[in-house]
């Protein structure tokens, strides 16, 4: 074992606690943001990352000739912008978010290394932590390029992120503060 959080210095446990609290808070706001801009259902995710426009599900390939459609809209409709992520924005999102997700996964993995759990469980937790952002962005790109049906992959990524954090935070809090074994 690299190190053991149960027997670690008070300062280390304090650092880990604050890190988990900060990450947990940012995850809660992240979930709120997803609810505001993308939604938690495959349909909503597909609307956000899939092809744009009225015929969102029906027309993914560019038509042979430009198609024009006209419909009445209200002032309110013009004001409320539907949050839609096109390819250029997704390139930007992937570029700026993937490194941050990697750093968060690495931080949580370092905490996981200090947990008193079997080797296989540690490997599984680390795999979940790093799989989550891959699934998240793979889902977005597949929804964009292949089929809106892949929206569920993004949702799976989001839930994997929440699951990984919850497992690490719960085990760390328990082992550091509640179920702690004192040094002989």
């Amino acid at each position: 074992m690299l190190y053991d959080l149960r027997h670690s210095d008070l300062r280390v446990r304090w650092l880990v606690t604050l890190l988990l609290a900060t990450l947990g808070t940012s995850y809660l706001f992240g979930a709120w943001m997803v609810a505001l801009y993308a939604g938690f259902s495959p349909h909503k995710v597909a609307e956000t990352y899939g092809p744009a426009g009225e015929a969102v599900m029906a027309m993914q390939m560019p038509p042979d000739t430009t198609i024009v459609a006209e419909r009445p809209v209200s002032m309110a409709e013009m004001g409320e912008e539907m949050h839609h992520v096109d390819k250029d924005l997704l390139v930007q999102d992937t570029h700026v978010h993937m490194p941050m997700y990697a750093v968060i996964a690495a931080c949580l993995s370092v905490i996981a290394l200090g947990l008193a759990i079997p080797r296989w469980a540690g490997l599984a937790i680390i795999a979940i932590l790093f799989a989550a952002p891959w699934l998240d962005f793979a889902g977005m790109w597949l929804t964009k390029l292949a089929s809106p049906g892949f929206a569920f992959v993004t949702l799976a990524g989001g839930w994997a992120m929440a699951l990984g954090y919850t497992i690490v935070a719960a085990l760390a809090m328990w082992q550091m503060w509640l179920g702690r074994k004192t040094n002989p």
Binding site: G53, E54, A55, M59, P62, P63, D64, T65, T66, I67, V68, A69, E70, R71, P72, V73, S74, M75, E77, M78
Partner: peptide, 15 residues
């Protein structure tokens, strides 16, 4: 006071 949205689904050639 009235508005319409004219939406163009642009072909590859026009793009």
């Amino acid at each position: 006071e009235q508005f319409t949205a004219r939406e163009f689904h642009v072909s590859s050639a026009d793009s």
